[in-house]
Amino acid sequence: MYELVEKSEVFNVHEMVIDAPEIAHSIEAGQFVIVMGSENSERIPLTVSDWNTDTGTITLYVLETGMSTLELARMKVGDSLYAVTGPLGSPSEIRDYGTVVLGGGCYGIGAIYPIAKACREAGNKVISIIEARYSFMFYHEKELHAACDQVLYATSDGSKGKKGKVEDVITEMLEKGVKIDQAFFIGCTQMLERCSEATRPYNIPTKVALNSIMLDGTGMCGACRVSVGGETKFACVDGPEFDGHKVDWKELDQRKSAYTEQETVVYQSYSHGGEVPKVGSA
């Protein structure tokens, strides 16, 4: 079970196609899985960016940022993951909104794809905006083009599309008077916040997929709690998507950094070829 059947990499983002037929049958757009590479691993949440009920596989895009994602990045086709739990989280709310804009950065470029597909099927006009530092860092583009009416680009160096970020593209659209009925954003916290600030003056309903630290993913522990509109919510069951105009970004940022000290030391020693220091015995 959970065999890695295909794998490729585009500049630090690893596409992992995993054998998980039951999940492939029950997953919906916006949901995620919690993954353990090996028996000793941390449980980390990853969005399911595509799935195929015929082959019984799910596709994850993993951005290598630390120890756990590095361990996944080092797995080879034919290896099996120790645990893949899902689907988790509430599915995206899909309806006929009219015009939907989806913004994606880093792993979000892959993660917006199923929402784009579902929104299109529900009758929406779908515009995706994706950002990266350089043009060669985009991935999954062909599929995204097929699922959207339009795909717009933003790059830090201007090598593809607009020079800038997703929010710059959105702001330009809104200034020009393009009507947007619903926006979804997936990516790092800073990007989610900036994009939400860009849609706020225009009162565009905005959903952001929050990525707080998780443990069980079933509502049992409260590790993932976030403040939205002054209320505490558990991102793994109440979310991950929330109203971007109501999120307490500072708190989320602080909670996400809770383990930075420990994680950094281990990641650095491990990624430089060093073995993870052994302490005690199992």
């Binding site: 443990l215 049992m220 993870v276 220091p277």
Partner: peptide
């Protein structure tokens, strides 16, 4: 922490053996 989180990290995830077990603990 909720006790659930704290105890799950320690017991189930064995974070008292971090970093050999990868789940960190404060």
């Amino acid at each position: 922490f909720s006790a659930n989180e704290y105890l799950t990290r320690s017991n189930l995830m064995k974070s008292y053996l971090f970093p050999q077990y990868r789940t960190p603990m404060i």
